[in-house]
Simulated assay, not measured.
Amino acid sequence: IYPVQKNLGFTLIELLVVVLIIGILSAVALPQYTKAVEKSRASEGITLVRAAAQAQKAFYLANGKYTADFSDLDFTFPGNPSGSCFNTKNFSVCLHDVNASSMHIQAMRSDRNATGLWYIIFYIQRDKPDCVAPASDAAANRFCRSFNPVSEPCPETGFNCYAI
């Protein structure tokens, strides 16, 4: 007589429960992961803008005015600076509204498909970087509020500024 073999596999119900649990965990974890990736990209933009601002301040102290050309600054930027802009993998950084006593530096994401359209902008008059979002873009404002929940008056109309 042959011995009776036990079924050593999983039942369909057990497999469905495991798949359901994995689905629930991924639904909770994926948005948090996406937000963490976006914030790490923003930290790159913040670093680039602060470095450009420091270089502009040094140029201003030496020359009594701001420059509209990155090649005038005593700093090596990543990417290829050409005139008032340079590009990295994640950002396009540009000098805007440059005159003798004011200017601002803007880092705009190269990939505009994630989390709305936000910018990192350093206004020389405010002496700090801001996360700037169009007032009408709820996703961008939600992202910028993750740095600072309170918006401030923004120099540009139609935008909300959140100090970083």
Rank of each mutant, 00 (worst) to 15 (best):
Ile105Asn: 05
Phe59Lys: 00
Lys39Ala: 13
Glu44Ala: 07
Ala114His: 09
Ala42Ser: 04
Ala36Asp: 10
Ala42Arg: 02
Arg50Asn: 15
Asp97Gly: 10
Asn113Leu: 14
Ser92His: 01
Ala68Phe: 02
Val49Thr: 09
Val37Ala: 11
Ala42Trp: 03
Val49Ser: 12
Thr47Ile: 11
Phe75Pro: 03
Asp72Phe: 05
Phe75Thr: 14
Tyr60Pro: 01
Trp118Val: 04
Ile120Thr: 01
Ser82Lys: 02
Asn87Asp: 14
Gly116Ala: 08
Arg112Ser: 15
Tyr33Asn: 05
Thr88Asp: 14
Arg112Trp: 10
Thr67Arg: 02
Pro78Glu: 12
Ala51Glu: 15
Asp97Ile: 01
Phe77Met: 12
Gly79Ile: 07
Asn113Met: 13
Lys89Cys: 07
Gln106Tyr: 01
Arg112Pro: 04
Asn80Gln: 13
Val49Asp: 09
Leu95Pro: 02
Ser92Asn: 08
Asp97Trp: 01
Thr47His: 14
Asn63Cys: 10
Trp118Pro: 00
Ile124Thr: 07
Ala53Met: 14
Leu30Asn: 01
Ala27Ile: 00
Asn80Phe: 09
Asp111Leu: 04
Thr88Gly: 14
Ala107Arg: 00
Gln32Ile: 04
Ala42Phe: 09
Lys39Arg: 10
Tyr66Gly: 08
Asp72Asn: 14
Phe91His: 03
Ser71Ala: 15
Ala29Asp: 04
Phe70Val: 05
His96Cys: 03
Leu61Lys: 04
Phe75Ile: 12
Ile120Cys: 03
Ala114Gln: 13
Arg112Leu: 15
Gly83Phe: 06
Ala53Ile: 13
Asn87His: 03
Ser102Asn: 09
Gln54Met: 15
Ala27Ser: 05
Ser40Leu: 12
Gly83Arg: 01
Thr34Gln: 10
Asn99His: 08
Val28Thr: 04
Asn99Asp: 15
Val49Tyr: 05
Ile46Arg: 07
Gln54Arg: 11
Ser102Lys: 02
Gly45Ile: 01
Thr47Ala: 15
Thr34Lys: 02
Ala52Ser: 13
Asp97Lys: 02
Lys35Met: 11
Leu95Asn: 05
Ala42Cys: 02
Asp74Ser: 14
Tyr66Glu: 09
Ala52Leu: 05
Arg50Tyr: 13
Asp74Leu: 12
Pro78Tyr: 09
Tyr60Cys: 10
Arg112Gly: 10
Lys39Asp: 10
Thr67Phe: 09
Arg50Glu: 15
Phe59Ala: 10
Ser84Asn: 11
Asp97Phe: 04
Asp74Trp: 00
Lys65Pro: 06
Ile124Leu: 13
Ala27Tyr: 04
Ala68His: 01
Gln32Phe: 05
Ser101Phe: 07
Leu61Asn: 11
Ser101Met: 08
Tyr66Ile: 09
Leu95Val: 06
Leu73Asp: 09
Thr47Asp: 15
Thr76Cys: 08
Ile121Glu: 06
Phe70Pro: 00
Gly45Asp: 06
Gln56Asn: 08
Lys65Gln: 15
Gly116Thr: 06
Lys65Met: 13
Met108Thr: 10
Ala58Ile: 06
Ser84Asp: 12
Val37Asp: 11
Ala29Met: 06
Ser43Lys: 06
Ser71Tyr: 01
Gly83Trp: 04
Met108Ala: 14
Trp118Ile: 03
Gln54His: 13
Phe59Met: 05
Ala36Met: 10
Gly116Ile: 08
Asn87Gln: 13
Gly45Trp: 01
Tyr60Thr: 03
His96Asp: 07
Ser40Pro: 00
Ala55Arg: 01
Val28Pro: 00
